[in-house]
Design a protein around this nucleic acid. Structure first.
Lengths: 252, 252
DNA sequence: TTTAAATATAGGTTTGACAAATAGGGGAAT
DNA sequence: ATTCCCCTATTTGTCAAACCTATATTTAAA
């Protein structure tokens, strides 16, 4: 028997069961795509009721560790972990963190600058023609003055995603999802009003040109100017707010 | 009424309910620390049974969005999103990805080198005396030859964590947890046999010295040599394996 | 006034049942 | 004999009604 009941004492049976199964998955005792025992069997082998087993399984499903299927060939299966699903989860949580103001915009911009500069460097070394084309395509979108602000911001996010993808480094891409899905949107949300699209697009173009020419330093420099512009725009927003809300305290 | 039943059509009631509540939290319709209606009330207002409501709530609990408390003042409460919890989740998933071999060690080392170099740079600018002391303390542990390999690796992880913390950049710390909790352990797991502790500790010391002296370039250089050593050790492990397993195919 | 027991309220768990999806087999029509 | 359709078995999905357990509040006794 793969799963054992761990001498439970008091509370949180569902939690303990889910932890038990989770560690079985992590340890490799349960392999990918393997089918778990039926819920009834689990209930019997753990000595608990089926709804409790189901609560435990739901926890795992919420963490994208298993998925379920009905019918004779159905059951609960160990899910192949996918970076996509992980990035979705990260995105949601990081967005919440940003939403409650856990980070201030200054440190977000600094983090963006430093980590995206890394991407520029690696991109210059590893980018393919397809990567360059993807970035150029987004710049083309950004130069179209008829699109909405939302579309512009979405294209901005896709541009940076393409930049990250062009590094060809899986672990780095995983880390950068947080930046792309949470930090870029929040910076955009703040500065999109005062930002000039053409200027942003031209800085994007500089990055692509440098990456195409394998000039990592140039790309990093263009990125630095892009984020300096973002920082500047942010200050402009702050000033405007200060002037509007509390005219006597316009400096801070 | 805050929560509404969304004209469900077919399957996945629990899922729909959890999505419904989740978006209420994300939108801010449910604020932090606010108490949800009791499970019974939720069941009534959604027109479903309490076990189903509980499954939905378990999903949210698994995503660290709510927590529950028993008793008269108990209930299900919207949880304040914390970077710790998020990093735990990321770590677990990233560890799984590493475990199934989604990334190869080369790209992990590259990602570590680039991102930790960023930390060196920011650390040199922002480190406090307490940060330096924390790093020194770990080096002291690493110089104690009586400790086990596990303890040495754990101290190694804590050293790098201290380095990341010393940047004082919240968003960056969030991203770096993936490196610290998933990527460093996996690299350690592979190379710990052939690595010389004293050499590793002395490179750690070089990093601290450079950071103390506000020399970001020197710190980054020491880090680069540390990871070059890791890469070298990894090659040694590979060679040893090749020689042992398939003597005729020792190159790759 | 302090302390301890009773109570009310909420989540935690169980039992037992039925509904819904689905793969596979068996029977009827061609 | 082959093909198509329905039927059934299996497994997850949902429901209902209870009882258990933890805990804050209230009440009563010392």
């Amino acid at each position: 028997m793969i799963l054992k009941y761990d001498e439970v004492v008091r509370t949180g049976i569902a939690r303990q069961v889910s932890d038990n199964i989770r560690s079985a998955i992590m340890d490799g005792r349960l392999k990918i795509d393997e089918r778990l025992p039926t819920e009834e069997e689990l209930a019997r082998s753990f000595g608990i009721s089926r709804p409790t087993v189901r609560e435990a399984l739901k926890r795992l499903a919420a963490q994208n560790l298993i998925h379920s299927k009905r019918g004779p060939t159905g059951g609960n299966f160990v899910k192949r972990p996918d970076p996509e699903g992980l990035s979705k989860a990260i995105t949601g949580a990081a967005t919440l963190l940003v939403g409650i103001g856990a980070f201030d915009i200054e440190e977000i911009i600094t983090a963006r600058l430093e980590t995206e500069a890394v991407c520029c460097r690696l991109s210059a070394a590893n980018r393919s023609e397809a990567d360059l084309a993807a970035m150029e395509a987004e710049i083309a979108v950004q130069l179209d003055e008829t699109i909405s602000d939302e579309d512009f911001c979405a294209s901005d996010v896709r541009f940076h995603r393409a930049l990250v993808d062009s590094t060809g480094n899986g672990p780095l891409k995983l880390m950068m999802y947080t930046v792309i899905e949470a930090f870029i949107p929040i910076t955009n949300m703040i500065v999109f009003r005062v930002r000039e699209r053409r200027h942003v697009a031209s800085l994007h173009q500089e990055i692509v040109d440098a990456v195409r020419a394998r000039k990592d330093a140039k790309a990093a420099d263009a990125l630095a100017r892009l984020l300096a512009y973002v920082r500047e725009s942010y200050s402009a927003v702050l000033d405007a707010r200060a002037k509007r809300d509390v005219p006597s305290q316009a400096s801070a």
